[in-house]
Amino acid sequence: MNNQTPISETARWGLNALHRAVRKEVEKKSKLGQYVIISRQGKTVRILAADALREADNAQHSAR
Rank of each mutant, 00 (worst) to 15 (best):
A63N: 05
I37A: 09
K31C: 05
K28R: 15
N3K: 10
H19W: 07
V26Q: 02
K28F: 08
S62N: 11
T44P: 00
A50R: 13
R23I: 06
D51I: 07
R40E: 10
T10E: 15
L15I: 13
I38M: 09
I38Y: 07
S62H: 09
S39D: 10
A21I: 07
N16G: 08
N16K: 02
Q34P: 00
A56H: 02
L32T: 05
Q60I: 06
A52K: 04
I37Q: 14
K24P: 00
L18N: 08
V22P: 04
V22A: 12
V45E: 15
Q34H: 05
G14Y: 05
A59R: 02
V22D: 09
R40W: 04
K28L: 14
H61G: 02
I38K: 09
A11G: 05
L15V: 10
R40H: 08
A56V: 02
E55N: 12
A49G: 00
A56C: 03
A52G: 01
N16V: 01
S62V: 03
Y35H: 12
Q60K: 12
K43C: 03
I37H: 10
M1Q: 10
V26E: 01
W13P: 00
I38E: 11
V22F: 08
P6K: 07
Q60P: 00
V26I: 15
T44K: 09
N3I: 09
H61Y: 10
A11H: 05
L48M: 08
V45L: 09
G33E: 00
R20H: 06
D57E: 15
V22G: 05
E55H: 09
K31N: 12
P6H: 05
N2L: 12
R40M: 07
D57Y: 10
N2V: 12
D51C: 03
S62Y: 07
H19Q: 12
V26N: 02
H61F: 11
N58T: 09
H61W: 10
K43D: 05
L48W: 04
T44M: 08
